[in-house]
Amino acid sequence: MFAYIIRRVAQSVFVLFSIALLVFLAIYAIGDPVITLAPQDATTAELEATARRLGMDRPLYQQFFIFLSNAAQGDFGRSFVYGEPALNVVLSRLPATLELALFAAFLAVVIGVPLGMYAGLKPDSAGGKSIMLGSILGFSLPSFWQGLMLILLFAVVLRWLPAGGRGDVGSIWGLQSSFFTFDGISHLLLPALNMALFKVALIIRVARAATRETIGQDFMLFARAKGLPPTRLVGVHLLKNILIPVVTVLGLELGSLIAFAIVTESVFAYPGMGKLLVDSIGQLDRPVIVAYLMATVLMFVVINLIVDLLYAALDPRIRLSGGEA
């Protein structure tokens, strides 16, 4: 298990390094920051002085390592718009997006797994068929339209939930989160549901396929031959087996939930990282964009690492393949 963790961490570091290289090259290709930053009427000598001050006169690989060492210390430069370190600007929006993504993932599992299991256990029943039909709908509806419809229904017509923004932030044991206030959760519910619906459809399909595959296995027959009650067959023998693919898919999707919160955050005017990115692109706030990219990549990598470790915890066969237990 230990060797397995070490190997996975090393892989993650390599991925981070590669992405940093890509982001650096992409930014380098976009244009010369010297011209952007120097006064418009600067002379050639002044431009050269600026380039020297910024380190732009050094060879590319040296610049890359300066970028890398600064990035490793969390320094991506100052935001042109906010005048603060770019990473701080991005990270100040992170809790809001993280809350949204986690809540959406939670909703996706809580709704998707039971529905998928039901559809897998009773594929020919009316319920099973309508679940699968509904999942096609969940896949096909565009996120922005779905969001608008949710606002229309629950905020405008029924007036049950607020239409947008972030609610009050409560604090428990020094931890600040809108999970801790009723107002916070009521603001989270609609955007999280909007993000979750697509994932629900996905998880229904994964859970259904895994269920269909698992119930045909010999060990399920043997478990029935032991005289186990259906609650135990479904709740333990089946559930533990289908959780492996569900966790895998969910882990991959959690990264994309954070990265693609952009649409939902824009529709619900939710002050998260996605909305920040859209705003920063509009204002050509380059340090913030770079900081956002690197922060998102780091999150992706960490989540995938956690998923792999979780996967190993769920499936004892993987745990062993990395070394002797």
């Binding site: 296995q217 010999d218 060990f219 027959l221 043997f222 478990a223 031959a225 032991k226 333990v236 023998h237 533990k240 087996n241 492996i244 769920l314 499936d315 004892p316 066969r317």
Partner: peptide, 16 residues
């Protein structure tokens, strides 16, 4: 009334 099956590699639940 108990029963055992042919393939011992598949009769036990791998994750329990």
């Amino acid at each position: 009334l108990a029963m055992i099956f042919q393939d011992p590699t598949t009769t036990l639940n791998p994750v329990l």
